[in-house]
Amino acid sequence: MDQKLNLLVLRCRDIEVSRVFYEHFGIVFEREQHGSGPVHYAAVFEGMVFELYPLKEGESADRSRLGFAVNLETDLRESLDAAGIEIVSSYEFDGRLIFVVQDPDGRKVELIQSEPKASEGDWTRFRSILLILAAIAGSLSFLNYQSEPMNGSSVLDVYFFYFALLVSLLFWPVMVVAVVGFQAINPYSDPVWTRPTHSCNPFRLKNPLCIAHFLMYFVMAQGAGALVTAILGGWLQSLMGIGMIIGGLEGLWALELVMKRFPEKMALHDDVDVAGNAPPE
């Protein structure tokens, strides 16, 4: 007879704090309440229901031990440090390094890095092709703006352009933070986001970080292309190229601000599995 664990319930002193902790491991919870029962959180993965319930008054937290195989885009230790999760201890089992951390109720949680998921695929080559095309387009798109030297233009026009460029560079990071940050409350975006990389899908609408990350590099590629042919396009094309590169860098900085502002939305990885082969302490 085949047997499989399909339910795990943890009683927590503060289910909101516990939810944020376990979401760092990529677990996506839904808020639930059955009739007049307590509000709790539930997640389903690998055919198992994982629930966080509040402790009853006077009840003590258990000392269960959990284990997760986590699929990270970066080194496991670096990811835990970035999330501010302290590593209590570590040991090797079956030739693999296992880190032990504590959840908000003092339970030991073992983490081992699993093999990366291949379902999303590696978008690095596709993104590179698009960025090359963006650079080519940028090298040609501004040639028709003007080819006169700067001293052939009206002084008022030159100052107005400088002012408009300065204003756009000052407000661009604010706009990126506002637009991407708004997605944190968008019910159609992923409940938990993964940190953007050069291999993530640039068209995944549910992860605004990946889209914005690619757009910033797309803009910088256009700016770099514009600078290559600036000798033909004149001073305006040179400024446009420099402005686009600066704007792209500012946008990447703004994304870092978004990730720091909404740490509860950030996951350490894309997938979570139950690790049932770790030995107890």
Rank of each mutant, 00 (worst) to 15 (best):
Q183H: 14
V17P: 02
K265C: 05
P116I: 13
V100Q: 14
A42S: 13
P202C: 06
L232W: 15
L97N: 06
G84Q: 10
I112V: 15
I129C: 05
F218T: 02
R261Y: 08
H213Q: 11
G251C: 02
R11C: 12
Y41C: 03
P54W: 09
Y53H: 15
K4N: 09
L97P: 05
F218V: 07
R96N: 11
K117V: 11
G95M: 11
A254S: 00
E16P: 02
A137P: 02
P38A: 14
I112F: 00
C210V: 11
S64Y: 13
L8H: 12
G152H: 11
L236W: 06
L5V: 15
Y22T: 01
I132K: 06
G247W: 01
Y159N: 04
F171M: 08
Q33A: 15
V155Y: 10
E59A: 08
A212H: 06
L131P: 03
Q146S: 10
Q222E: 15
L170P: 00
E16C: 09
L111S: 03
G138F: 00
N207K: 04
A254M: 04
S199M: 04
G121Y: 08
V20E: 12
F68L: 08
F218E: 04
P280S: 07
E73P: 06
M150V: 06
I136Q: 05
I231Q: 13
W123D: 01
E78H: 15
L170E: 03
M259K: 02
P104A: 06
A118P: 09
E281V: 13
W123G: 06
V88C: 00
G95L: 08
V101H: 03
L169G: 02
A135M: 14
D62E: 14
E23C: 09
I246Q: 00
